[in-house]
Simulated scan of single mutants.
Amino acid sequence: MATLTTFMSSVILILVILCPSIHAKPSKGIRAAYWPSFNSFPASSIQTSLFTHIYYAFLLPDPATFKLTITSEDQTKLPDFISSLRALNPPVKTLLSIGGGGNNATVFSEMVSTKQSRQVFINSSIEIARKYGFHGVDLDWEFPADVVDMSNLALLYKQWRQSLDQEAKASGKPRLLLTSAVYYASEFTVYGGPRSYPAGAISKYLDWASPMCFDYHGSWENFTGAHAALYDSKSNISTDYGIRSWIQAGVPAKKLVMGLPLYGKSWTLRDQKVNGVGAAAVGVGPGDGGILLYHQIVDLNARTNATVVFDNQTVSYYSYSGSTWIGYDDVGSVRLKVRFAKKMGLGGYFFWALGQDKDWILSHQASDTWKYGGGSV
């Protein structure tokens, strides 16, 4: 009996060493992703084991009334989204996201400008979220244009959170979550003049903020770039800089959820023999405006027998074949970025967007790395 016990103990020890995830306690945190309602990827196909929160993207406020607009398509997709996710196991929390890259920033600026208009917007968001059964609401205003917008944004966060607290108390239901997608850095000068996000209001009133750590480079430039570079020794256009700027501004690390892209950017090289990061380009490459989804990149690389390179300076990948150059994230860079998020003490990460992965490869890598600290490459 003693011999058998000793033998079993040895087997268990070997398994623990070889398979750390067997004994590792899963790390709690936010593993989120946006579901674009305008794409064809069905919500019923989401692998909920890989996520904790899923965003419905997007609704927009009416330009005149500031109440959320429910299109005829939303009338079908909203209930289907909720019912589909409720039928999946394990369960995830759902958030209603408002805004997005296609929003009219002027409408948001007008909406936040008075207490009355803010309240109309807030009441509408709560009404819609409760009607369809969401667990929270999310604001993706791209982007407040000046210091006045930022000041009013702080007032919106405060008023919104107070309204959510009051509604929860009156209804006896759990309070709706309040989150917000934000620029990758806390201060910026693009899309307007110099301004800073209201870090104090974000810290006090939001459950978390989600810096969009991507789109650093693209079709507007005549050189190749890592559009979601973790590091950049030549500029402040990097995730490392952006996340640290948020923490330095006073937002607790645990209230930051770092964005990761499931797409890449492509260029057409000026000289096929000059093909590194920063190489001269004469325009965009394949894809919609030089944007390729991860599953498209994997397939294109295989079809063209492209050369794939991991760039340890930016912690990203790029591939080239002929004059086509693509910068993107792959398994190794996703693992390192999620490790960075954990090391920084962040609250979690999110992906833009569901339906862009390839057989859930990057989603699996991120989830395993977050939960167990490792994951395979």
Rank of each mutant, 00 (worst) to 15 (best):
T3F: 11
L4R: 09
T5Q: 14
S9M: 06
V16L: 04
C19P: 03
P20R: 10
S21D: 07
K25Y: 06
K25T: 14
P26K: 10
W35M: 05
S37P: 00
S40K: 14
I54P: 05
I54W: 07
A57D: 10
L59S: 03
D62V: 04
L68F: 13
L68D: 05
L68E: 10
T69M: 15
T69Y: 11
I70P: 07
I70E: 14
L78E: 02
A87D: 09
P90M: 08
K93M: 01
T94P: 04
N104R: 12
T106I: 12
V107N: 07
R118P: 02
V120F: 05
I128P: 00
K131G: 10
F134Y: 12
G136M: 02
V137K: 03
W141P: 11
E142T: 12
V148I: 14
D149N: 13
M150K: 07
L153Y: 15
K158I: 04
Q159Y: 08
G172T: 08
G172Q: 06
K173H: 04
P174D: 04
R175T: 03
L177W: 03
S180H: 08
A181S: 09
A185M: 04
E187S: 13
T189D: 06
T189G: 01
Y191R: 13
R195V: 05
S196Q: 07
Y197A: 03
A201M: 03
A201F: 04
L206K: 05
L206I: 00
F214A: 02
D215S: 07
S219C: 00
W220K: 12
A228R: 00
A229W: 00
L230G: 02
D232L: 04
S233Q: 08
N236M: 03
Y241K: 06
G242Y: 09
G242M: 10
R244L: 06
W246F: 05
I247L: 03
A249K: 03
K255F: 07
M258G: 02
K265I: 11
K265T: 12
L269T: 10
G276F: 13
V277L: 11
G283A: 12
Y294M: 03
H295V: 01
Q296D: 15
A306P: 12
T307I: 09
V309L: 05
Y317C: 05
Y320C: 01
I326E: 01
G332R: 13
K337Q: 09
K343A: 14
G348A: 11
G355D: 12
Q356Y: 14
Q356K: 13
H364Q: 15
H364R: 15
A366Q: 01
W370P: 00
G374N: 14
V377P: 01
